[in-house]
Design a protein around this nucleic acid. Structure first.
Lengths: 158, 158
DNA sequence: ATAGTCAGTTTATTTTCTGGACTGACGATG
DNA sequence: CATCGTCAGTCCAGAAAATAAACTGACTAT
């Protein structure tokens, strides 16, 4: 299987991974949710090759995750903003953050103990961590409690 | 910045992406949560180079996300199982699935409409989709309601 | 006139991925 | 007992992708 075939798979993971599933794209998205919008800022924060920054931003725009918004006319300049579809990736990023906080921020040595960033929920005013719950009974989800079966969009195997 | 430097960043996204942030690793994890355990099964389902399958599995084992369990002595054979740490990645995979279901499974054409897989929560008996909520007030999370600030594990910028 | 900002593109080199063959231990078939 | 099939890899050469660093080009500020 090659990269581009992923999007054709009858699998929601594959289709999503085809868009956001490489290292730098996820880092770009992290920065988007932190408010980064301009090419040079992505570039400076990521410290990767400009080629890749440009290519990844373009792909996210093509996929409708980001959109270019003109912020200056002369010379013509755009910034990159999350679309509604892009905002739907928030749970993905937060799930990743949550995993990282749990497993790579442990209070071991003195320096760097604890999570690098804290998240405050403005609605309730508390620092929180994200919890994935069932849309129906609202209980936290555990893999073992979930049964998977073919849905309407299934082909043969997936 | 290079690949291996990611793990050193004071950022939970970067540290996690350093482990799971490439296309095939995420696909491997999807299969793990679907119950796939053996090398040949990963290999056949992914249809990628055996080299990569082997390398990715090894990395996940090194990172403590999977562990090898002997299931046969002669010849010695192992299967790959999720560790507790690995199970903590469930929200990540489900968030990805959820995004894919919403944006790449739309009921457009007749064939392939709707999500490829359905998920049933055994606890409540319902088909569900995952909802990311605040650990404190239990309301669904929206990016705009979240404020981020430096935590104890921050260095300079992150 | 010179330097700096900003958003890229181009190029040459290095790294990674790919497909395919190969190893090696065993079990089943004829 | 010779050959095929299963399983879990490893090895290799060629193709594809990522990298660093220089370059373009339009403008602004000094």
């Amino acid at each position: 299987m090659k990269w581009d075939d992923l999007a054709q798979e009858p699998c929601s993971v594959a289709r999503t991974v085809a868009v956001i599933g490489d290292r730098w794209t996820l880092m770009v998205l992290r920065d988007c949710f932190l408010g980064v919008r301009r090419f040079e800022d992505f570039q400076a924060r990521l410290g990767i090759s400009r080629t890749i920054t440009a290519e990844r931003l373009k792909r996210l725009v093509d996929e409708g995750v980001l959109r270019k918004v003109r912020y200056q006319d002369n010379p013509l300049r755009f910034e990159y903003r999350l679309t509604d579809k892009g905002h739907d990736l928030y749970p993905v990023i937060m799930a990743v953050v949550s995993f990282g906080d749990r497993h790579y921020a442990g209070p071991e040595g003195q320096p760097g103990a604890g999570p690098p960033l804290l998240h405050r929920h403005k609605t309730c005013g508390c620092d929180f961590h994200p919890v994935m719950t069932c849309s129906e009974c609202h209980a936290p989800l555990v893999a073992r409690d979930v049964e998977t079966r073919a849905g309407p969009g299934a082909r043969a195997a997936a």
